[in-house]
Design a protein around this nucleic acid. Structure first.
Lengths: 322, 322
DNA sequence: CGACTCCTTGCACATATGTTCACACGGCTT
DNA sequence: AAGCCGTGTGAACATATGTGCAAGGAGTCG
């Protein structure tokens, strides 16, 4: 309940705090709060919006512990992964699904990330959607690190990926380590050489020490291909090579097969994503998936043991269990 | 996010959970939720009310850590007690104050009480107010124990005190140990004898092992006397004896002076409240105070080191600091 | 000093939410 | 089967909340 005329706090935040108390703890109406705060009802409405948006007010849903949904339980049994099924009506569009799952993740992410932690984040449409809604949470000495490069033949990719990452970084007040390299090098040798650069040491070390990893899965061969597959990162030959190698998906542009294996997939030697073994060492690996077209890819990621916590829309969850 | 067609859960709770998600996590309007749930908007409104009232939805206010209010900081410095100041306008009536502080406490109490814990609770107008608003929280193997007897010359007091305690017990799904004795025995010897009864052993042991104690302070000589002082528990002689002994207040009908001392206060030998030393052994001692008339009594309780966490209305808090 | 921008405010209106009420349904008694 | 709860429902109404907009105030620049 810290608030009330603290000189160190901006008046606005202070009022927001007080308003939040009066509204959420004491069930006053905004009208009444307006009177106490000597302002208009509309301003109170705005104060409360701000309080919610800035994470001052924290709303959680706590299902009785004995009530994981049937699907969540099923997923836990089959894949040893904690699933968070987001209710979305069956007839919703894929865009809707994505948006709604992303919103749910954005709201709850603060539960997983705290002071002194390192979080690795990938980029793509899903992460973009999540980033646009993250509820801020104040942390100290926290670090966010980009998981894979985002440059392609047409641009450095800095705008897109960096914008995403920056939203997280701002929301958590965390330092941000970007990864200004192409998504794929042309020559594996160049990549290997570059990896030995000392400038990369810090970044790789951070990735090795991540507490949380946040990513989605890519699905190259689905009807709704992921960002990577349509953004000019891969040419036709490369695409075909993936197909020939039996690839079903990727995590942070590291490709894998249905059984989770990655050996002998040439593109991986040129990619900039973290070794899957590095990922697997990360205590919490949060995967966000929406849309049935990602099911095959998701199965592969599960087989590769890349995931500890899965956020997924309802019908995709059901599809996964079939 | 556990919910969704879990056969083990009542449909109603299930719907409430889903509705809560859609409303609080996905920002859908109730209208939209009604459509998804194939019901009417009004029902959704009711579902959400239920979800809030039953603690399914948990709303917290998290002030930036660096922002305890000035008053809270002041109280911490002076009394080594964590204060939670509840904003209440200066012109509010004492009844208002009480209600609003009580509501705030009721909402947050779940933070302090959990499975396998023992909580001791006093009774009185304040506790009554709190009890009427406690937000339920599911716990296992938790125990609530009454701190002091509630019988008087006119009744066993079971109705009043028991009703209060039962509300807590229900809200937390905790076992309840009542204390069916008068508030004060007529003869100290009777009390001592009774205390040796084996039936009392269990109760006293629980009190000795409390994890949390919840109480207010009584203020005998203020213009707004507490429940104990007007409920027929004390006659004029006893009242005068208290006055002569320099008593400023009580906690669970154990009386103390301004300096926190209790020695040589005759009524304490006949009272049924816990020894203050027992109280002081309790790790968390939550005191709820509203109304300036309780300030003197509160000072005494602070001097006696009876409190670790203090919930108090704003103007009383200011009065305390003067 | 004025002209400008950028923010904030409160009003009035548009929506969203809460609540009352009459009614329908299932379980239970007679 | 008829009658009588208690519970739960949606329509209609009553409130409460969100938002576009025009106006005002503080700061900045010429």
């Amino acid at each position: 309940m810290g608030h009330l005329d603290d000189p160190s706090l901006s008046d606005r935040t202070n009022d927001a705090l007080t308003a939040a108390h009066l509204y959420y703890m004491q069930d006053l109406t905004m009208e009444a709060i307006a009177t106490e705060l000597h302002t208009s009802r509309s301003s109170v409405s705005r104060l409360l919006s701000q309080a919610r948006a800035s994470g001052l007010v924290d709303i959680q849903i706590r299902s009785p512990l004995d009530a994981p949904s049937r699907v969540e339980q099923l997923i836990l049994d089959r894949f040893q992964v904690t699933a968070h099924v987001v209710p979305v009506p069956d007839h919703a569009s894929d865009a809707d699904r994505l948006e709604r799952v992303a919103l749910s993740v954005a709201r709850i992410l603060g539960e997983y990330f705290d002071s002194n932690m390192i979080m690795g984040i990938a980029w793509g449409s899903t992460m973009n959607a999540v980033s646009r809604h993250v509820t801020p949470k104040r942390t100290h000495n926290a670090q966010i690190v980009q998981l894979n490069g985002a440059g392609n033949t047409r641009s450095t990719g800095l705008d897109y990926a960096s914008e995403i990452l920056q939203r997280f970084s701002t929301a958590f007040d965390a330092r941000l380590e970007q990864f200004p390299v192409p998504t794929f090098f042309d020559d594996p040798a160049t990549r290997r050489a570059y990896w030995r650069e000392r400038g990369l040491r810090r970044l790789l070390e951070m990735q090795g020490n991540m507490d949380v990893a946040l990513f989605s899965v890519g699905s190259p061969f689905s009807t709704v291909p992921s960002h990577v597959y349509v953004g000019g990162y891969l040419d036709d030959d490369e695409f075909e090579a993936l197909s020939n190698a039996g690839v079903v998906g990727d995590v942070a542009t590291v490709f894998y097969r249905a059984d989770g294996s990655t050996d002998g997939i040439p593109l991986n030697d040129r990619g900039t994503g973290p070794e899957l073994s590095v990922l697997r060492r990360t205590p919490r690996r949060i995967c966000v998936v929406s849309g049935r077209s990602k099911v095959d890819s998701l199965r592969g990621a599960l087989a590769a043991d890349l995931i500890t916590d899965l956020f997924i829309d309802e019908s995709t969850a059901r599809a996964l269990c079939e």
